[in-house]
């Protein structure tokens, strides 16, 4: 089995948006929407501060809430774990947008829903997604979780701390955040101060 996953090392990420813009160019994402964006949050008070630079995108959940609510079956999970969209079937009802806890799906001007697909066209050729390939801080790793020697498995194993977004919802994301700068974990999850 293949279980594709991505890990983002927040200790390295500087929130420069190279991934976001690489994604935009690679996937011809139109102006006005994004498959990938950066959330930079400041925590603390002067001079005890930290900033979390957090890229966000579709998390390719193990248990994706967007898939069951799709009335036409256009949202589905590929065998390798990529949560994908069959645009031919999309009726633009936005039910999946409503269901996504991460705001990762968007409507295209042509009336189709779209989102990050881990650059499946690259993955199918054995290449890395555009965001992983371009990242100048090398904070992203990608690969098969079922392969203990894949870059992503190694990164997760060696991380000081591993978090996922909104774990309380039971979505079991396949996008992991490593080494959060704030001791309490990801910003916006449980709150907290330095």
């Amino acid at each position: 089995m293949t279980r594709l996953a991505m890990a983002i090392d927040l200790a390295s990420c500087v929130g420069c948006a190279a991934c976001s813009i690489a994604c935009k160019m690679e996937n011809e994402v139109p102006l006005g929407v994004n498959r990938l964006w950066i959330r930079n949050t400041t925590v603390g008070t002067f001079p005890n501060l930290t900033v979390e630079h957090r890229p966000e995108q579709c998390l390719h959940c193990e248990n994706p809430p967007c898939v069951p609510v799709c009335p036409t079956g256009c949202c589905f999970v590929r065998d390798d774990g990529i949560v994908d969209i069959d645009v031919k079937k999309c009726i633009g009802c936005s039910a999946c947008i409503a269901a996504c806890p991460y705001d990762a799906r968007h409507m295209l001007p042509q009336g189709y829903v779209s989102k990050c697909d881990f650059c499946k066209h690259r993955v199918d050729e054995g290449r890395m997604p555009a965001c992983v390939e371009t990242c100048p801080t090398l904070c992203r790793t990608f690969g098969d979780l079922d392969d203990p020697n894949s870059p992503v498995s190694i990164a997760i194993r060696e991380a000081r701390r591993v978090d996922v977004l909104r774990p309380g919802l039971g979505t079991e994301p396949n996008l992991y955040y490593l080494n959060t700068p704030a001791a309490f974990g990801l910003v916006g999850e449980t709150g907290g101060t330095l």
Binding site: C16, A17, A18, S20, I21, A22, K24, M25, E26, E28, A130, E133, T134, C135, P136, L138
Partner: peptide, 25 residues
Amino acid sequence: VRKVDGYESNPKSRGMLCPRGQGGV
């Protein structure tokens, strides 16, 4: 030009590129 990428053999990109380079096109 649809996309630009860094390439491995160039010591100043090593296959990676910053946001400006990506979007500057």
